[in-house]
């Protein structure tokens, strides 16, 4: 689905235009937003493919929501250009009828019922108001549509927000923290819904702090930090960019130092942790370690490969201060 792209060295210019314009739901070049002298979004070049679930990840204040707001015509960019569904972001009226969005917390009129709130939006966007009931069922709010919005729990408000975003039967669905406040069952339902929508051809953009959630539901990933684009590409691209760890457990603890020496001799950084040796090495090297250890008279009671999580990958790209710390990135299929 995604052509593999190699990670350039740190400081190298981001790769732009590697996919055809028609394959992209969103494309920006140098998209920038300044508030005073501070760049909240700093020259971002986005490429979000059509028909997939793209995840927007970044720490608080990274610029995710500001970027999404610029794509939705709510905020005027200070600089740069962009296209959404092939139309320029300077003319949001030309594409927003094909876009559904839930930005930040779901915001509706508190004293009006959930159903009436949706009808107001449907009327405003000249959408079919008869879809409202079906949407309430789709998001699990059947039977509660007549209740005032202020009486809803956070999870119910979130569901109403998703229903509102689905009103225009969008080609592009933009959801900012869609599982916020949902219980585990609700989170699972939303994941399934997003997957189903993407499988039906809808492009979905999800912003979230929950890296596990992003890893579960997203095909494509965008990492933004300190207003800058740190990575974009397939999720597996970022994951494979993470060096695997080979974990070997000898039968006898006394063999741990010799096992660590074997790893070091093969130029793999190793440390002894508990009853095992952890070596930073490609997964394929595990078999060679097994052979070498056996030849040295060390019997392995356990041998495993840990590839790391998206969280590991995320923190490899950003640190807590939002600075890029990935000094060298192995081939992985993405731009950073």
């Amino acid at each position: 689905m995604h052509p593999p792209r190699s990670l350039p060295r740190r400081g190298a210019p981001p790769m732009i235009g590697t996919a055809g314009a028609t394959d992209l739901a969103v494309r920006t070049e140098g998209l920038t937003k300044h508030y005073g002298s501070r760049a909240v979004v700093d020259a971002i070049d986005l490429e979000l493919p059509r028909g997939v679930v793209s995840g927007f990840v970044g720490p608080n204040g990274a610029g995710k929501t500001t970027t999404l707001r610029m794509l939705l015509g709510l905020i005027r960019p200070s600089d740069g250009t962009g296209e959404v569904l092939g139309a320029p972001i300077t003319h949001p009226a030309s594409y927003l009828s094909r876009v559904g969005a839930l930005i930040e917390a779901p915001a509706f009129y508190p004293t009006i019922s959930g159903k009436r709130n949706l009808e107001i939006l449907a009327s405003l966007g000249r959408h079919d108001r008869r879809r409202v009931d079906a949407l309430l069922v789709q998001v699990g709010l059947q039977g509660r549509g007549g209740d005032s919005f202020k009486s809803y729990s956070l999870g119910m408000k979130q569901r109403l927000g998703i229903a509102a975003a689905l009103l225009p039967q969008p080609e592009l669905l933009v959801l900012d923290e869609p599982t916020n406040g949902l219980d585990p069952a609700g989170i699972r339902e939303v994941r399934a819904l997003l997957r189903e929508l993407a499988d039906d051809g809808m492009t979905v953009v999800v912003s979230s702090h929950l890296l596990g959630e992003i890893q579960t539901i997203c095909d494509h990933l965008v990492v933004i930090d300190d207003g800058k684009l740190r990575f974009q590409g397939p999720v597996e691209g970022l994951m494979s960019a993470q060096r695997a760890e080979v974990i070997a457990t000898p039968e006898h603890a006394a063999d741990l130092p010799r096992l660590a020496d074997i790893c070091a001799a093969a130029d793999h950084l190793a440390r002894i942790d508990g009853d095992a040796v952890h070596a930073v090495a490609p997964a394929e090297w595990a078999a060679e370690l097994n052979r070498t250890a056996m030849a040295a008279g060390i019997t392995l009671a356990g041998l495993a490969v840990s590839r790391g999580t998206l969280e590991d990958a995320f923190f490899a790209i950003t640190d807590n201060e939002g600075h890029q710390i990935l000094a060298h990135a192995p081939d992985g299929g993405g731009t950073a």
């Binding site: 707001r69 939705l72 015509g73 709510l74 949001p92 009226a93 927003l96 876009v99 969005a101 930005i103 930040e104 917390a105 915001a107 509706f108 009129y109 508190p110 939006l121 405003l124 966007g125 959408h127 509102a164 009103l167 225009p168």
Partner: peptide, 14 residues
């Protein structure tokens, strides 16, 4: 104050 404006302007950007 309710934040509804962002929903409304996505549905009617003019």
């Amino acid at each position: 104050t309710t934040g509804a404006l962002r929903n409304l302007l996505v549905r009617e950007p003019r």
